[in-house]
């Protein structure tokens, strides 16, 4: 975009108060205003108006793009599915106004706890999704634990009352060698979220916790256990 500033725009005939120059300046200002408005509107189409986080549409687009990037760069891509615990109760007990305030509150807390490259979205209702580019499963699980504790430790105060909120987290990773779709990626993370719900809420679940998959490296404790009988008896 052309970056000439006003100083450059002057009347070629040196007339002060030239009407043509004045018109150009006015048009430039209008253009700036329109550009800002355009940015605002396009942000709106990918933002959730209540929380100011990205919306589902942006999530879909970003996830596709980041998975493509992972296939190109080889860096793992992590995904966290989050659901607020017992949120229906908040709405029932305190009303929808407070419910909405709670959703905004959660968005504010978590936005401060992530990197600028991370993409935090409101998936819908009381569900959130965090996309973590160039992040291993281990790192993502740690990030989820940070989000979990930051929410659990900072209650929302509404009308003098402390409302303690917690959330459950499901974490999954996409590696360059994986071939599943964006849809499947979301489903997998959602499966771990369900596991977190089933196992008591306010917790993080991923492949690392499930016996059906996970790290295959032989751990030091397994090595010790394999050879324990060979140690000389004391």
């Amino acid at each position: 975009m052309d970056q000439r500033d006003d100083a450059v725009i002057s009347c070629p005939e040196g007339k002060s108060g030239c009407p043509v120059v004045a018109e150009i300046r006015r048009l430039k200002e209008q253009l700036e205003t329109l550009k800002k408005e355009y940015d605002r509107v396009s942000r709106l189409t990918e933002c959730d108006p209540l929380t100011g986080l990205f919306n589902f549409k942006h999530l879909e687009v970003s996830l596709q793009r980041e998975m493509e990037r992972t296939r190109r760069t080889g860096f793992p891509l992590s995904l966290i599915m989050i659901d607020l615990d017992h949120f229906k109760k908040v709405n029932d007990v305190y009303g929808h106004q407070v419910g909405n305030a709670a959703l905004r509150w959660v968005g504010r807390i978590w936005r401060n706890g992530i990197r600028i490259t991370d993409i935090l979205c409101r998936y819908g209702g009381e569900e959130f999704t965090l996309i973590l580019p160039a992040t291993s499963l281990k790192q993502a699980v740690l990030a989820a634990h940070r989000l979990r504790t930051s929410l659990a430790n900072t209650p929302l105060v509404e009308e003098g009352e402390e409302i303690r909120l917690t959330a459950s987290f499901g974490v999954e990773v996409y590696k360059a060698t994986d071939t599943f779709s964006a849809d499947e990626f979301l489903k997998r993370a959602d499966k771990y979220l369900h596991q977190a719900k089933a196992e008591g809420r306010n917790c993080v679940r991923s492949m690392e916790d499930s016996s059906a998959g996970g790290e295959t490296e032989v751990l030091p404790e397994e090595r010790v256990a394999l050879f324990i009988t060979r140690w000389p008896k004391l």
Binding site: S211, A212, G213, G214, E215, T216, E217, V218, E222, R223, L226, F227
Partner: peptide, 20 residues
């Protein structure tokens, strides 16, 4: 042999964890 034991266990672990 300890290396054989460890490698056999590693194989079993991968096959059970990743391949069911």
């Amino acid at each position: 042999d300890p290396t054989s034991i460890t490698d056999a266990y590693a194989l079993i672990k991968i096959l059970s964890r990743e391949y069911g």
